[in-house]
Design a protein around this nucleic acid. Structure first.
Lengths: 117, 117
DNA sequence: CTCCTTCATCGACGATCATCTATATGGCGG
DNA sequence: CCGCCATATAGATGATCGTCGATGAAGGAG
C-alpha cells in the first residue's frame, strides 16, 4: 500500500476497474487444476482418444503413479468440470468435456483476459 | 502399475505415444505461474493497459499485498517469459509480451493439447 | 555527501499439495 | 455366499508455495 504520493509521477493511473476477486479466483482454480504434469498427461491421453471413453487402468499404466494417486488426479479434473465419468460394472471410464476445453481456450484469449470472466 | 492382465478387457489400448515428461513439465510450469489470483490480476492490469508499460506502484496500489510480495509475483511472471521489465531511474515498468500470450493461447487449443508441445 | 524513495532479495512461517499405504465400497465369478 | 478385482476414500508425510518483515542496492534531491 502506497502511504504517500510520489514526489514525481511514475505513471498515469489506469482507467477501468480491476478484475474482481471472484473472477480472479475462478481463473486461479482452473489453472491450478492444469498445473500438474500428470493431469496434463491425463488430458493429453483423453484428447488423443478423440472423445472416446478411456478406462482408469489406461492412466495407471501410463503414468507411473500409484492407483490412489491417479484416482485423486481424476477427481480434481472431474470437479473442475473438465471430465465426465461413466461407470460400467467395476470399471470407470473417463472422457473429456469438449465444451469445457472450448471454454478454457476462450478464457486464455488475451482479449478475454483483458476484461473479466 | 498393472500387475496382471485383467480377466476381461476393460478397453482397447490407445494408439500413439504419450506426451513426453518434458513437454508435460513445461505445460505444468506455465500453468503454475498462472495459478494464482494475484498474478492473474497483474496480467489483467497489464492487458488492460494495451501494451503500455505499467509501474510497479500500480500493482502495489491495486493488489492489497506487501511490496515484496508484488515483486515476487512479477519475478515469476517475468521468468515465465510473460512479462518484460524496463527500468527508468528507480522505477520499474512492466509490460506484457504479446507473443507469449499468443503462444499460451495456442497451447491450450484442444488440438494442440492432443499432441505434444 | 547524505537522506529518502523505489524496488529486489533474504529468511522464516503457515498453508496447500502430491504422493504413498491402508482401508472401504461395490460389482462379478464361482 | 465368499472371495477377488477395480476404484474410491482416509490419513499421514514431505515438498512446494505465498506471504510477510527486515534488509540490501541503487538512483535522485537537496
Amino acid at each position: 500500500m502506497r502511504k504517500r504520493l510520489p514526489v514525481i509521477a511514475c505513471c498515469t493511473p489506469l482507467a477501468g476497474s480491476s478484475l474482481s476477486d471472484e473472477d480472479a479466483a475462478e481463473l486461479e482454480q482452473l489453472f491450478k487444476v492444469l498445473a500438474d504434469r500428470n493431469r496434463v498427461k491425463i488430458l493429453n491421453i483423453l484428447l488423443r482418444a478423440r472423445g472416446q471413453a478411456v478406462c482408469v487402468c489406461e492412466f495407471t499404466d501410463q503414468l507411473d503413479l500409484a492407483q490412489p494417486t491417479v484416482s485423486y488426479h481424476l477427481k480434481l479434473l472431474r470437479e473442475a468440470g473438465l471430465l465426465d465419468r461413466e461407470k460400467r460394472g467395476t470399471f470407470a471410464y473417463f472422457r473429456v468435456r469438449p465444451e469445457a476445453m472450448e471454454r478454457l481456450h476462450s478464457l486464455v484469449e488475451p482479449a478475454a483476459l483483458a476484461k473479466a470472466v
